[in-house]
């Protein structure tokens, strides 16, 4: 089956990111395809390039990148929710006259329409909230 995940919780504030990652790995292990993880609401903080958790804690940003690299899963971040919260890729940083950027590939800033398309085109969309 083709799956998508919607993640609404911030990393290191609630368990949602951990639950979503566990579920993501498990569904791939069962032979399904995880098309996209869509980050919305406070879930956009999962894309923070500069996250620096202590070494003895799971590194969630790296874990999402690894998932994407291994399985070709798209990591799509709602651009409106991200910009409000200070999560900008290099292009948006330049456009807004900001120094430095906080989001980079494989995370991509995208419109909310993607979420609706995903939800209606994939076989399953599973939401993880805070």
């Amino acid at each position: 089956m083709r799956y998508a995940i919607l993640l609404l919780g911030a990393p290191y504030s609630c368990q949602a990111s951990h639950s979503a990652l566990r579920f993501a790995r498990a569904l791939v292990d069962r032979g399904h395809r995880l098309e996209t993880v869509f980050f919305y609401h406070d879930g956009v903080h999962n894309a923070a390039r500069l996250a620096a958790p202590p070494q003895d804690e799971p590194h969630l940003v790296d874990a999402w990148v690894a998932l994407s690299t291994e399985h070709g899963t798209a990591l799509q971040v709602c651009i409106a929710a991200a910009l409000r919260r200070g999560l900008l890729d290099a292009r948006e940083a330049a456009r807004h006259g900001k120094q430095g950027h906080s989001v980079e590939a494989p995370f991509e800033l995208t419109g909310l329409g993607q979420l609706v398309d995903l939800g209606l085109s994939c076989d399953r969309l599973v939401t993880f909230g805070p």
Binding site: D29, R30, H32, R124, V126, T127, F128
Partner: peptide, 19 residues
């Protein structure tokens, strides 16, 4: 277990999350 979680989502037409 988490494998069973995935199986439950397979068996259901879709999922609804409450948080």
């Amino acid at each position: 277990d988490v494998d069973g979680f995935v199986a439950l989502t397979e068996e259901a037409e879709r999922t609804v999350s409450w948080y």
